[in-house]
């Protein structure tokens, strides 16, 4: 069953006179429980595609369905609720609210949804425990390492049991060890917790953990591979460099 589906999705930035297409005529379907990595060189439109999928940005034309909802038809409030309940985001930068504790950061989507605070915090504790940070619940983001911060962000994405988790270069700012931790955690989210995950990265080692890799160039899908067996990083790296050079 498809969780995310796009149809001729197009996003054009810039003026009318000087249009810069970021995403061009993309048809993409992500099934439930799938781990999809979107790859491509800088400026290929992969982040824009991710934002369109999550309702952070409005398409110029085309459609996005999240489960049965046509995102384009939603007003701002409904879209906010959709992001709150159906989508979990993990970004590269500025992921956490600095004045909130780890626990509160995780609980914020629930609290915004009106869940009683005590209950929201309890659920946040459970989510933190899943990412191995139960003992860091009362720490502020500045008191956590970069890898820990991203795991808090992942806990926040998990806490609402969303239809899909969208991760934008979640390891882009991390050293390799932290990066491995985070990616393995993402993999577990799919395997153990049955989440659907779409991840944007330019790191083939990260993409190697995915079930499927979509290559984007100049806003268009140029390749869509289902990986059989894991850890096929070299193959991916090769394909990537070929694309960049071509």
């Amino acid at each position: 069953m498809s969780i995310v589906r796009t149809e001729s999705l197009t996003k054009v930035y810039g003026d009318v006179g000087q249009p810069i297409p970021a995403v061009h005529d993309v048809d993409l379907t992500v099934d439930e429980g799938e781990f999809v990595a979107i790859m491509g060189p800088s400026g290929s439109g992969k982040s824009t595609l991710l934002y369109l999928l999550g309702g952070l940005d409005k398409p110029t034309s085309g459609k996005v369905w999240l489960r049965d909802s046509d995102i384009d038809a939603l007003d701002d409030d409904a879209l906010s609720r959709l992001r709150r309940n159906q989508v979990g985001f993990v970004f590269q930068f500025f992921n956490l609210i600095p004045v909130l504790t780890a626990q509160e950061n995780v609980a914020i989507p629930l609290i915004l949804d009106g869940m009683p605070r005590a209950r929201a915090l309890k659920q946040a504790d459970e989510a933190l425990a899943r990412v191995g940070l139960a003992d860091r619940a009362t720490h502020r983001p500045t008191e956590l390492s970069g890898g820990q911060q991203q795991r808090v962000a992942l806990a926040r994405a998990l806490v609402t049991k969303p239809s899909v988790i969208l991760a934008d270069e979640p390891t882009g700012n991390l050293d390799s060890r932290s990066s491995d931790d985070v990616v393995q955690m993402l993999r577990r989210a799919v395997d153990d917790w049955k989440q659907t995950l779409v991840l944007v990265t330019h790191d083939s080692r990260v993409a190697a953990f995915a079930d499927r890799i979509v290559f984007l160039k100049d806003g268009k899908i140029v390749d869509d591979n289902r990986l059989k067996g894991k850890g096929n990083a070299d193959q991916i790296r090769e394909q990537l460099s070929k694309m960049v050079l071509s």
């Binding site: 999550g54 701002d76 906010s80 609720r81 992001r83 709150r84 309940n85 500025f94 914020i108």
Partner: peptide, 16 residues
């Protein structure tokens, strides 16, 4: 704006 944008991304409405 980063914090506010983040809150919006995780589902805060305009009114919130």
């Amino acid at each position: 704006r980063h914090d506010l944008g983040m809150l919006r991304a995780v589902g805060a409405t305009r009114q919130q």
